[in-house]
Amino acid sequence: MVNKISAVIITLNEEKNIGRCLSSLQGVADEIIVVDSGSTDDTQHIAMQYGAQFIVQPWQGYGKQKNIAAEKAKYEFILSLDADEALSEQLRSTLIAIKNQPMADAYQFNRLTNYCGQWIRHCGWYPDKKIRLWRKGMASWTTPRIHETIKLAGGVNAKPIQGDLLHYTYYTIAEHIAVANKYTTLVAQEYADRGKKPTLIKLFLSPIFGFLRDYFLRLGLLDGYYGFVICLVAAFSTFLKYAKLKQLLQEEK
């Protein structure tokens, strides 16, 4: 008996990415569910061209939105992707084999990121291990303000499998900086909620140590110019989240 896969994706104005994602699912997913939080571009039209079930759902946060999408799935296995991700050919082949002969209740594979047209294999960005395929009921997304992760049911272990999940992240450096600005604001708010304090060491030394770690120890220098940019933006983001946290705490006084 061939097991079936439900692919679930959350979207908001993803017309430049969604077609590539859905195309890679052809022949792998037995149903595709797109849960959209109010796109005003061509996302819905593209999704429906690929036969996806398109559901409009007001934004609930990353983890909650992904859990809502997973709840809509009707088949045995759930494959959860972001709109800017796509299956590599090797990963497609591996998933098809799993449908014919499942070996576990959850699966983990590496994510390879494309930054401004270049594949990044260092900087701490690869291998970026992700659990994205699981048997229904065996996992769910956590629901923090940002950086949601998969929580497996008790006793379930994720089996590593072959093939990369391709992540088309930033098309320009400006886009990267804009997202870093948005996310550091969310992180600062989360830190404030948890009572975390922006010590001088965190504010001034963490960005420096972070850059040295990513660029030298994690070999970001081997990714050339964009490796340098990635490590520098990451270091500045570390500074920003603590600087914003400091400002938030001052405003609360």
Results as ranks from 00 to 15, higher is better:
153 A>Q: 10
237 S>V: 11
218 R>T: 03
160 P>I: 10
207 P>Y: 10
189 Q>T: 12
177 I>H: 02
244 K>D: 03
238 T>N: 13
243 A>T: 00
194 R>I: 01
222 L>M: 06
176 H>P: 02
157 N>G: 06
161 I>H: 04
218 R>P: 00
182 K>D: 06
200 L>S: 15
188 A>S: 09
204 F>E: 14
192 A>N: 11
218 R>L: 10
236 F>C: 13
147 H>R: 13
178 A>L: 11
158 A>P: 00
228 F>N: 05
175 E>M: 07
211 F>I: 09
178 A>V: 07
171 Y>M: 06
234 A>V: 06
182 K>M: 11
189 Q>A: 14
201 I>E: 15
150 I>D: 10
143 T>K: 09
206 S>L: 10
153 A>K: 08
203 L>H: 09
213 R>C: 07
174 A>G: 05
169 T>I: 02
239 F>V: 07
239 F>R: 09
211 F>T: 06
225 Y>M: 13
163 G>D: 12
144 P>E: 12
160 P>K: 11
180 A>G: 08
200 L>I: 14
192 A>C: 13
241 K>L: 04
154 G>Y: 05
213 R>F: 03
154 G>E: 08
245 L>W: 01
190 E>W: 01
154 G>H: 09
198 P>A: 13
144 P>F: 05
243 A>V: 02
169 T>M: 00
173 I>Q: 00
208 I>G: 10
225 Y>K: 15
226 Y>E: 10
169 T>E: 00
145 R>E: 12
172 T>D: 02
216 F>I: 05
180 A>W: 03
215 Y>W: 15
200 L>N: 13
220 G>I: 05
194 R>C: 09
166 L>I: 12
187 V>S: 14
195 G>M: 09
195 G>C: 01
221 L>D: 00
216 F>L: 06
165 L>K: 03
210 G>N: 11
230 I>R: 03
185 T>G: 06
211 F>A: 08
163 G>F: 14
151 K>V: 14
193 D>M: 14
170 Y>A: 00
209 F>L: 15
